[in-house]
Amino acid sequence: MSPLDRRTFLSRITVALSVFIAGLVGVPILGNLLAPLFRAPPDGFVEVAKVADFALGVTKLVSIRDQSPLAWAGQTADTALWVRRREDAGPQMFQVFNVNCTHLGCPVNWQASAKIFLCPCHGGVYYADGTVAGGPPPRPLFEREWQVSGDRLLVRQQPLPTVKQG
């Protein structure tokens, strides 16, 4: 093993110190930047509206609000959902759909008279029960878990992307 000469030693110390500085500063920065990736996704149920607000056989646009939004989030704390009241009571009472088309995520529009959901981006079409009626969507509209608590309808919160969920 050849002895380390002075200049090689100093070069290595210099490079090592530089890497140390970068690491010291880089770890907190990267940690801060990547934190959203490791935060637990929103879960749990939030209130939508009174059950009585939904008439039988009607599909209605509602919105839920993020429970702990950033102060400057404005409208982005809201999420729209389509709620369809199927029955008076029981486990088949509601269908709650994400507004995102299962094709690429554009918001689908309910055409009340024609009883179809139409996607404005590529013309995906769904029937009232969320099944695909035509166009490119690969699968039915995503439904959300819901429950009735007292006289209120609650739905489960959900993260993007919706395309990976069932």
Partner: peptide, 13 residues
């Protein structure tokens, strides 16, 4: 996807 929207949903961040 989470990196694009900086969190679980498009929001304040």
């Amino acid at each position: 996807a989470h990196l694009v929207v900086a969190g679980a949903n498009v929001g304040g961040a």
